[in-house]
């Protein structure tokens, strides 16, 4: 059993009322905002299971919007997220969705910015902890405890080696890595969780590799 930290039982510092339905929901929205890498202009948010059933009581919808606006789970502006979204020109819509046999506190966020768009699916798994388990229809497993480099590319030999070489040359240690693709030669996604932050130069070098790589990073959160 993992050892219990004092701040597992005293904390987190968060905006109420629920660590899983409010604090975790803020973090899910914030994760989507950070993966997008720019301010969100449009968001289509599908709430699944317990999120759909009790969102109004725990303000799960407001919490997700707050996260999409870039707020952390202890931000006292969370209650005003809808007004702040309107002021920021963020257009949003919520709906109930059935995502199948997934965690009951799941949400699917389709978000657009001026440059990019992304679809993120994740769950709030208790005590404010979250897990992102799908990005752009690729299976992932990201809980925010590591910095993440995401690289979307066309499946071909050498890309993984190129990317890991760039990381190595900046002294960035890879803790975990996963490569997946839809079919051979089609879209592929590399997810590298690293011990060290991904600096701007690394992101830029990965983007300059052959084959139109879409690279994003998600800092620890």
């Amino acid at each position: 059993m993992p050892q219990i930290s004092a701040f597992d039982v005293v904390g987190p510092i968060m905006v109420g009322p629920s660590s899983s339905h409010t604090a975790g929901a803020v973090r899910l929205g914030l994760a989507a905002r950070r993966i997008l890498g720019e301010p969100v202009t449009h968001a289509d948010i599908g709430l699944h299971g317990s999120f759909a059933a009790t969102h109004w009581g725990h303000r799960t919808d407001v919490a997700i919007l707050a996260g999409l606006l870039g707020m952390s789970m202890d931000d006292s502006r969370i209650p005003q997220a809808k007004e702040l979204a309107d002021a920021a020109g963020l257009q949003y819509a919520f709906q109930t969705v059935d995502l199948g046999d997934v965690h009951p506190n799941s949400v699917r966020m389709r978000v657009l910015g001026k440059e990019n768009s992304i679809e993120v699916v994740g769950a709030s798994v208790g005590g404010g902890r979250i897990c992102i388990y799908e990005i752009d229809r690729f299976e992932v497993e990201i809980d925010g405890s590591y910095t993440v480099l995401l690289a979307r590319y066309k499946d071909q030999p050498g890309v993984v080696a190129d990317i890991t070489r760039i990381l190595a040359s900046y002294g960035i240690n890879i803790a975990f890595m996963k490569v997946s693709r839809k079919t051979r030669g089609s879209d592929a996604l590399l997810v590298a969780e690293t011990d060290d932050p991904i600096v701007d130069d690394v992101l830029e070098l990965v983007r300059q590799l052959q084959g139109g790589i879409v690279a994003r990073r998600l800092p620890r959160f």
Binding site: V10, I13, M14, V15
Partner: peptide, 18 residues
């Protein structure tokens, strides 16, 4: 009540018992 009203609290050990 502050927790129920979207106020900032310390979960201790949980938000419901803060």
């Amino acid at each position: 009540q502050h927790n129920a009203s979207l106020g900032r609290i310390v979960a201790c050990p949980t938000a419901g018992s803060c």
